[in-house]
Amino acid sequence: MDIDCPLPVNSEETIRLGHGSGGELSQNLFRNSIFPHIKNPHLEHLHDSARFAIDGARLAFTTDSFVISPLFFPGGDIGELAVYGTVNDLAMGGARPMYLSCSLILEEGLPLKTLERVMASMGRAAEQAGVQLVTGDTKVVERGKGDGLYINTAGVGLLEHDRDIGPGSIRDGDRILLSGDIGRHGMAVMASREGLAFDTPLQSDCAPLHAPVLDLLRAGINVHCLRDLTRGGLATALVELARARGRLLMLEESSVAVDPSVEGACELLGLDPFYVANEGRFVVFVAPEEEQSALNILHRHTVSADSRVIGEVAPSDPAAVVMRNILGCERLLDLLPGEQLPRIC
């Protein structure tokens, strides 16, 4: 018998797609190539938005870039994503989203009709989210140097309370609330990109999330932490929070809703819905005694009508996320090394 086995591949000298996945490779990129050169207390928080005060006004500030193929997918398009993504990052800091910027990187040859369709969608989304797109920029790159259209948005929001919403405020025993089912956006985009047809067409969950968040705050709920689930899905978001706070998060798998069409598509492709992207879901950390009142408020909003408790913060380390499955067996949820790759058979 001959045993052959390859040398480890550690060629991280170039950027790979996995560096954008939000998983372990992304973390390495921040740690090794970005943070050594740019340091300040705001950046160290690693939260969705930076928060600071100017002349007494407390503000939140964030930016996000949107590169997605196809530009239009069931349940949304790149324009909606670009508005809601930044609105949601502000909302997760507990801020009221106010003003957005919009930078367009256009590829030579992009039909004007396509651009106008995206702009119309951005206009509608901004109106829906109660924000104004107040400044912007356009650049054109040669054909073949872009994917049709890239959008960057930055946003400013107003903090109307003095709570410190973030991983640092997570307390032992906190309940973890999730605003709906998971995995819709990632599977809808994949199905549409790869031409996979399923019996029930998958729709992205792309939506603005500021309304339920502002309602929670207005009602005086002591929200400890908020996080929207984007690339990397529920698992990646919770692992980042567990690490940032240094606590163990315990989840019940059966409490996390996955739509049958998402579940079926994931089964077929060998993907784990806990790591599939969302664009309209978030988690809320509150003390146990506020669980019910928080749920009551969340249930009033369409985007969070199916909110449930999915787990709690255990009063112990290590900093990790452990999920108990339907058979009572516990597994550790960790960051994935890179992108999730569909399996062979």
Binding site: P6, L7, P8, V9, G270, L341, P342, R343, I344
Partner: peptide, 11 residues
């Protein structure tokens, strides 16, 4: 298929 892409070859 996706999961062949990350299998280490010799280098």
């Amino acid at each position: 298929f996706g999961d062949m892409l990350r299998v280490p070859g010799s280098d």
